[in-house]
Write a protein that binds this DNA or RNA. Structure first.
Lengths: 203, 203, 203, 203
DNA sequence: AATGAATGAGACTTCATTCAT
DNA sequence: AATGAATGAAGTCTCATTCAT
């Protein structure tokens, strides 16, 4: 099992470390995430961890990014039923907040992380925000405006405002530990409907 | 070395430690906030710090709360000119975001802190939200609805939605390091106007 | 034995650490001098070492300086018999080289150490070289020139040249492991006599 | 990946490693000279380094020796102008000290290295000191004694004494960081002239 | 001949906390 | 009320070396 390992094995080892790291975060939180702990959890020497990650920072970054990808993957799964675009927005935001809350440790670390490597994925203010979810939201808003008779002057801005509200909501629900499904559904719904209401009337 | 200190002296000592702690946070960040550092900065022994604070956690809590109070004090200062309520809301939010950004280290620590002692001050979801600013915002919205012809059905909810958007905005501006005055003014303005527009039309 | 220790105790502890450190150097060399080893040798926690020394560098510096002081103390002991100044120079240099060789580990570390804190003590080129031994050598050369009929134009320079030769000799005897008493006596004698011979004739 | 490498290739690889090692020493010092670093610098695997050198020690030895050879090559280059032997000695020593100082990292490591493999090259006390420079110095002194009317009883000893002085000088100039050309020229000159003066008078 | 993943010891350092005085 | 020496665990990181391939 020593040298010139097949790329598969490499990936496997990296995966092993990542899984170990995530296990630690999930059970004890990010404060407990240390190189030492990861090595122990993965049943590997400390040196090995440094073989795969240059330093703690890059390990944390990998964990955080991996958490973000799980989150987004979850959110992007297709809905069960076909619904009107405005309904879809609500459904998706509910799922977004639920997923974020269920992985709150990652969510906060990712969404408040100022490291350029992370912000690259999470930015809301950069122009071509395709990957980050803002793009999808714009598309949905556009659809809604056609199908449901909204008139939206600046979709980009409106999407961002709506997103910021949900974002603020998510963080406060986590912080205030109001994480029941009911809380989530109620607030997402009223936020979205308030927003759409405005759009409908603004023609 | 002293005997039977007057309560004043106690308060003075506590203050000295708090000031020292804040100085450290401001110059080097929360990561550098250690008991040792505080003792040194305040020119006091380590043991003394433990006289006033049970452990590190309670010291951090005190620092964080004190930061929050400075922040709110700043925001609550009266405006220079008398303006319409809707204008005042915008002005105050601009100031809020600016102050939060100028003290971002505290702002994040406070506003994302789930400790009950902190949440007690920062909560947005609890009913009688008088102290936290939501109360003031409700009052302003109420005034606006009278003076400027809005119709608002549920002022409490509307105030919270608006606040959540500004809250989300603040955190993302910090995270993405978009902290110029222009960014702040533009975003706060468009967010508030979008919101008011909706209210005006919703009659 | 805890707090507000008497200064004596403090000095004792520092001494304990210094002695431990020197024991390590003497038995295993400077490469083996680690904070860990010192703590163990002194039967003290690692943290305690850091209580007395800011970092490894300052510990090493203390060890090195202490070694230098022992060396100089040894060299400066009065001679057993009163002899002519030129003889005294030879006797003292023989003792210097012998002591240096018997403590070769320190000698090299000190005399090749470029740290300002060390060079301050060992410098040969600075003007007022009173403490470093050059001063004493100048005095002896001066005496010799009166009593034994030398004429020396620039005593400072001549003292330094003689010293440099002995210094070079010491280092090479150590490096080439020619450390018998015979080697030392022979070389120091021939070097000094060569030097004096010149001086005698140069009138 | 290759089969049956020609001896040339072997030498080439060794050279590549040696060059890499020297590059590291020159840019970052001997402390930074690690097997890892050499492998990286030479764009070669760690294992390969161990093919060519048994362990770190032998690599360091090779580096050190190679440095010494560069140094001596430089010193042995012919002088630009033909000059009297005593002048040539001064010129060559000035060059020696300058070169040593310009490569101080190697100079110290070599000239204070007690490993037999190194001392074999640098020894000053062994009898047939042909290669090490002492031989050349003896020849020059001999020439001077014929051409310039010195009488020297024991050329071998006198050469060594002069050499030891220059050696001591070089090490102290490095240690005390007095490395301007002026310092070098002044000291070498006064040392040599003092020595020659003695020789002239000793007839 | 060459690779490079893995090891595991050991380096330095920081820190919250205790407790005898 | 105040001190500060002492603890000891935990943290990050580097390194020479081995060995299966």
């Amino acid at each position: 099992m020593r040298k010139k390992m097949k790329p598969d094995t490499i990936k496997q080892n990296e995966m092993k470390l990542l899984i170990a790291a995530k296990a630690i975060v999930e059970s004890t939180g990010f404060e407990a995430l240390s190189i030492r702990a990861v090595a122990q959890q993965a049943d590997v020497s400390i040196g090995t961890v440094y073989h795969y990650y240059d330093n703690k920072e890059s390990l944390v970054e990998a964990v955080v990014l991996s958490g973000y990808q799980s989150l987004m993957w979850e959110v992007k799964q297709p809905l069960v039923n076909e619904v009107a675009p405005s309904e879809e927005i609500i459904e998706r935001f509910i799922r977004y907040v639920k997923t974020a809350i269920s992985q709150k440790k990652y969510y906060q670390k990712v969404m408040l992380n100022p490291s350029p490597a992370i912000v690259k994925h999470t930015s809301i203010f950069k122009e071509n925000a395709i990957g980050s979810g803002i793009g999808s939201l714009e598309v949905l808003l556009q659809k809604a405006s056609y199908q449901e008779g909204f008139t939206i002057q600046d979709i980009g801005t409106q999407a961002r405002i709506l997103w910021l509200t949900i974002y603020g909501l998510t963080l406060r629900l986590i912080t205030e530990k109001k994480t029941t499904d009911e809380d989530i559904v109620d607030w997402v719904t009223v936020i979205c409907e308030t927003h759409f209401y405005k759009l409908k009337r603004s023609e």
